[in-house]
Computed example of a mutant assay.
Amino acid sequence: PPSIPSPESPAAAHAGRPATLAGAILHEDFARRRPPPEPEPEPPPAPLQDEFDNPYLCPYCAAQTQPDDRKCQACGAKLWIKTRRREERSTWLWAALTVQMAGIIWPATVPLLMLVYAAHEVEIDNPLTLVPAYLGLPGSVPPKVANAAFEVMPRLYILAFAFYLLFSLTILIGLYLRWKPIFYLFLISALLALVLGGAGMLLGQGVGLICSGGGVILALLMFLLLLQLEDDFFLDEKRILLRVDRSAKKGLDFLASGRRYARRNMWATAVIHLRRATSWLPDWIDGHLELAVAYINIKRYDLAAQALAEARRISPDDPQVAELTALLDSLRPQT
Rank of each mutant, 00 (worst) to 15 (best):
E51P: 00
A62E: 06
D53P: 00
G103E: 07
G103Q: 01
E38C: 13
L115S: 03
L97C: 14
A102G: 12
W80F: 11
P59F: 00
E51K: 09
D53V: 14
C72H: 02
V110G: 00
A62S: 14
G103W: 05
R70Y: 09
D29L: 04
C72S: 04
P43K: 14
D50P: 00
A62K: 04
A24N: 02
T83E: 15
W94N: 14
E28V: 11
C72T: 01
D53K: 01
R32M: 06
L79K: 00
H27T: 15
W92V: 08
R70V: 12
W80I: 08
W106I: 04
R84C: 03
Q100P: 00
P37T: 09
A96Y: 01
Q64E: 04
G76T: 09
C58Y: 04
H27C: 03
I25N: 06
E40T: 13
L113K: 03
C58P: 00
A63L: 11
Q49C: 10
A63M: 08
V110D: 02
R85V: 03
I104A: 09
K71G: 02
C58K: 01
W106K: 12
A77L: 03
L57Q: 09
L113H: 01
T91M: 15
D53I: 00
A19D: 13
W94K: 15
K71T: 10
L93M: 08
C58L: 09
T83M: 10
